[in-house]
Amino acid sequence: MRIPILKLHNYLLISIQVEMDDNTAIQFQEDLLDKIHQTGASGVVIDLTSVEIIDSFIAKVLGDVVKMSDLMGAKVVLTGIQPAVAVTLIDLGIHLQDVPTALNLEQGLIKLRQELGE
């Protein structure tokens, strides 16, 4: 299964709508880095509104994706983390401290513009 990545101006938008198994998560990581490289996108919003569970593996993949994109010069914002997911992440001891987050896609785009000083 592949997660679609949309391009909007110089941003990439992703809304994760599938139940993410480990392979899907890893494939997504690769696809996103490729897409950043191809498009020269400066910002990425990953919307997690439909994601009902983030376990330690998926959290690691997401955290890595943010760091790797950053290395390539693209800022990532995670949006729409459900309350139940936020609670379980804290129980797991995962704080995603350096990861910019926002309430929803719209706020995410605003945050990106701020982060990028655009």
Partner: peptide, 11 residues
């Protein structure tokens, strides 16, 4: 919330 906790623990 507890459903998510349980699903996460199982995962």
């Amino acid at each position: 919330v507890d459903q998510a906790r349980i699903a996460t623990a199982i995962s």
